[in-house]
């Protein structure tokens, strides 16, 4: 019987992201919020572990009240329970404060054996929160996992994606794993799961429920300050000249002369 916690995040649908060129902030109006695509693989992997080893899966997210929808989505896929960490005090957290808060949320949930995260979030792209949670909990971390080979005798053996292939490593439980999309193909929810998820009760945890230092939370607890977000300047379209070499040379020299 394994207790599995999956940390997931609600992000704007990245196929649709636009940045306001004046304020350099994300235009959130009319942009659908979805479960971070990498987190779906973590949820799927948790379900597969449970199918093989028995256990209980809890999905955890930190975010505003509307983040509840991704918890319900995970429940519709087959997860047992959803927990929402939500408090104004958490607002403005960077990756350090986020992983601190999530780690303390996990402690409140009780005993755990495996924590799963997507390799990174599609909005911030930092890949820091998963490892951060492991550090705050003082447990081993296995990042970029592409395959779980086995879980037995309190140990897990995984294949971990590295630049020139993969490495096989082993860690003792409890541990945290971040997974890459090569690990599985996330399932589509079932109708029974969807109906269950509608009625499921979402457990809510606020700052007061956690054993944390207030100065480590939210914007105040975040050592990283975002100075500026901007869209990179659009690259100008290139021009392709076709035809005889002599003609091309003439055209190119014409362009160069035009610039001068």
């Amino acid at each position: 019987m394994l207790n599995i916690v999956v940390c997931i995040k609600q992000v704007p649908d990245t196929t649709d992201v636009k940045i306001n060129p004046k304020t350099n902030t994300l235009i959130r109006e009319g942009v659908e919020s979805i479960m971070n695509p990498f987190d779906r693989y973590a949820v799927e992997e948790a379900l597969r572990i449970k199918e093989q080893h028995e256990g209980k899966i809890t999905v955890l997210t930190m975010g505003p009240p509307q983040a509840e929808s991704i918890l319900r989505e995970a429940i519709s896929m087959g997860v047992d329970e959803g927990v929402l960490l939500s408090d104004r005090a958490f607002a403005g957290s960077d990756t350090w404060a986020t992983s601190y808060t999530l780690a303390n949320g996990i402690k409140v949930l009780g005993k755990f054996d495996i924590i799963l995260c997507g390799k990174q979030a599609a909005d911030g792209d930092t890949a820091q929160v998963g490892p951060g949670i492991a550090v705050h909990l003082n447990i081993p971390q296995l990042t970029y996992v592409k395959k779980i080979e086995k879980i037995e005798d309190g140990k897990v053996t995984v294949e971990r994606l590295i630049e020139e292939g993969y490495e096989v490593i082993e860690a003792s439980l409890p541990c945290l794993m971040t997974v890459v999309k090569e690990i599985n193909e996330p399932r589509i929810p079932s109708l029974k799961g969807m109906m269950k998820s509608k009625k499921a009760e979402i457990k809510k945890i606020s700052a007061a429920d956690l054993d944390v230092k207030a100065e480590y939370l939210g914007l105040d607890g975040s050592p990283t300050q975002v100075v500026k977000i901007f869209s990179p300047p659009q690259r100008q379209k290139g021009e392709i000249f076709e035809g005889e070499v002599s003609d091309i040379v003439e055209k190119i020299s014409g362009v160069i002369k035009g610039i001068n």
């Binding site: 399932r187 589509i188 079932s190 109708l191």
Partner: peptide, 8 residues
């Protein structure tokens, strides 16, 4: 089948 749609 897995998504239960055969039984709607």
């Amino acid at each position: 089948a897995d998504s239960d749609l055969f039984g709607v």
